[in-house]
Design a protein around this nucleic acid. Structure first.
Lengths: 185, 185
DNA sequence: GTCTATAAGAAGATAGAC
DNA sequence: GTCTATCTTCTTATAGAC
């Protein structure tokens, strides 16, 4: 009787991927069941509702973002930390052009469904913004909060535009400009 | 036998508003019918499918964006034109915080549905980008295309983050920073 | 052109055998 | 714990009277 079973993990992984590719509303339980190789009726043994799957996926993305931020935090210099953070999308240019940012797409979709997942999804944004604010603070910049907003807005917009144009090179171009912006501050 | 009837206009207006507030997938034909005061069965006299309604709404947004760009183009100085463009979201801070940008939300959602509306929605982004590129060109900046991408990305990200945090003041803050960026170029 | 009633097909959720 | 069959509801779309 495993509390965290193999099947449960597979369901979450499939849900996470399908929600990224097609959005939450477009992703059906049948899709998730098929993709993870779990029969549809069995999904309800692990999750009472579709919404509880979404909640788990959002939590996984928060966790994943926190891992990234921890990884970036190994640099002693706060500007270096930000540069490491900004570089991350370079590894995912194709994926971003095809499906957008896992944070931004979720945020835009969840905020507009009537669901009770709003709080959960805005925490994902908050966590990210707060970390950036801390780095600008450590750099002793004035108005670090506003700088963090500008940084995250640029990165989010970068993903949205790259996706709209289906052009991975948008990511590389804007990451380069954002690096320069950070270094010039 | 009016080719463009009152009811047709009302349907489009309702669809446009509801799609902005709740997204395309979440908006049902029954919603649109109720909001516009047209009986459900009668919707199909004006639009053969739900998708054709979406297509019409996208076209209306393209038209609306072109009107905005024309209005901004009255300024003789290209930098002034861009500043007028960047100022526009200030009139809609509350709306952006509540529902996001009509361009960005549409783009992210449509691109991820399997629908055949992708081309239509990316034209909306292209039109906007091209106009900005022209202004930077007129300012004789190097790499005007890349500057246009950075500008639009910042504005799109601004709307997404303002929506995620449900905070209209994000718009004012980032518009101010973007104005400074343009003036300092 | 307008509108009611309803068909046809998804999609979320449950029952109950194993 | 697992899985098939099915219920219910919602949604797009159509039929056909007026």
């Amino acid at each position: 009787m495993p509390r965290i079973s193999n099947k449960r993990d597979r369901l979450i992984r499939s849900a996470d991927e399908l929600i990224l590719r097609r959005g939450y509303k477009q992703t059906t339980l049948a899709d998730i069941a098929r993709d993870s190789g779990v029969p549809l009726g069995n999904v309800y043994y692990y999750f009472k509702t579709k919404e509880s799957i979404a909640r788990t996926v959002i939590d996984a993305r928060i966790e994943s973002m926190q891992q990234l931020l921890i990884a970036c935090s190994i640099h002693p210099d706060p500007a270096e930390r930000l540069l490491a953070f900004v570089d991350f999308p370079l590894q995912r240019q194709q994926d971003i052009a095809e499906h957008g940012c896992p944070l931004g797409t979720l945020s835009y979709e969840i905020r507009r469904s009537d669901s009770s997942l709003t709080a959960e999804s805005s925490e994902l944004m908050r966590v990210t913004l707060d970390w950036c604010t801390q780095q600008f603070q450590a750099m002793e910049k004035s108005d670090p909060q506003s700088l963090a907003l500008q940084l995250i807005a640029t990165l989010q917009g970068m993903s949205l535009v790259a996706n709209a144009l289906n052009d991975p090179s948008v990511v590389a171009g804007l990451v380069a400009r954002t690096r320069e912006w950070i270094c010039a501050l």
